[in-house]
Design a binder for these strands. Structure first.
Ligand SMILES: [Zn+2]
Ligand SMILES: [Zn+2]
Ligand SMILES: [Zn+2]
Ligand SMILES: [Zn+2]
Lengths: 166, 166
DNA sequence: ACTGTCCTTTAAAGGTCACA
DNA sequence: TGTGACCTTTAAAGGACAGT
């Protein structure tokens, strides 16, 4: 197996990656994304030229899914993973308080369900990490208290192209 | 200059990049991000333990900047670059209509200012591309008409960790 | 037609507080 | 004290339409 990669190829991959993460496509080729949340909107129907046509619309929607931690109903991703409001809050509080004192009174393998999720904090916390929740996404430092979407970074292209105006 | 890079290092860089793009940090080490937009919010003051303290708050704010294309005042990034509403709209319409018939009546190097920006479409369009606006960020296909933030992709960690529940 | 101001719509951050 | 249903706040996508 190759242990090195050409710098040029590396740049290509990075650029491609950044292009994807700049605007995630909710298309068929990336089901994992459509799985992330429910949605409902009207999309423009294509196939005709833009000039001289009445706009045609089509309803697009997708049902909600369940929390990756406990299985309760969930509408959006929180800290990187589709979860319910309860597990979202639990994860945030745990990260913010830096808690590492949870103990499991059983064997450390408790199943987490909507009804019992608050019984064993250790196993709930472990489950949060296993499904991929990102502690780093809980805002701290300068960003503590900052709500809502954060501004996106500039296009990586700016690192390579000459920008004649700053 | 190196023309190859170790695969392991490549993975590290990619992971680091994705970690950053998951939650961009608006801190001092990444001024290009704080430069992107204006903001104003209250942040929690740190330095004390979480238990048994009254929350302290501090105002944080930053003035708005100017459009990278024409220099008019701008509040947010559009299609990857801080621009005014006018240049945002011009860029969107141009991409959506797939226009490539613009011509410059001068030498193709018109300066773009708030007052003359609509005089030469070709030079305005070239300027949009030079400063890094991303045509791909104009939604088309399934996403045509879809408003607002799109759901984020799952954390790249999911590609490497075993996920025992789907 | 084209422009650009103003508006609505998104997902997902953090905050609130009755309830246990 | 911890929980979680519900709320506000973000940046930035698209839409509307009066003005040119
Ligand atoms: Zn849950
Ligand atoms: Zn347990
Ligand atoms: Zn502009
Ligand atoms: Zn010109």
């Amino acid at each position: 197996m190759e242990t090195t990669i050409h710098y040029q190829q590396f740049i290509e991959i990075l650029e491609n990656y950044q292009r994807q993460s700049f605007e995630p496509m909710m298309d068929n080729s990336m089901d994992s994304i459509t799985d992330l949340s429910c949605y409902s909107y009207e999309r423009r129907i294509e196939g005709q030229s833009w000039e001289n046509q009445a706009l045609a619309w089509e309803k697009v929607s997708k049902e909600c899914h369940s929390c990756a931690v406990c299985g309760d109903s969930a509408a959006y991703a929180h800290y990187g993973v589709l979860t319910c409001e309860g597990c979202k809050g639990f994860f945030k509080r745990t990260v913010q308080k830096g808690r590492s004192d949870f103990v499991c009174l059983k064997t450390g393998t408790c199943e987490i369900t909507p009804n019992n999720r608050s019984w064993c904090r250790l196993c709930r916390w472990k489950r949060c990490l296993i499904v991929g929740m990102v502690p780093n996404a809980v805002r701290s430092g300068h960003l503590a208290g900052r709500r809502g979407k954060l501004p996106k970074r500039k296009h990586i292209a700016d690192l390579y192209f000459l920008n004649d105006k700053h």
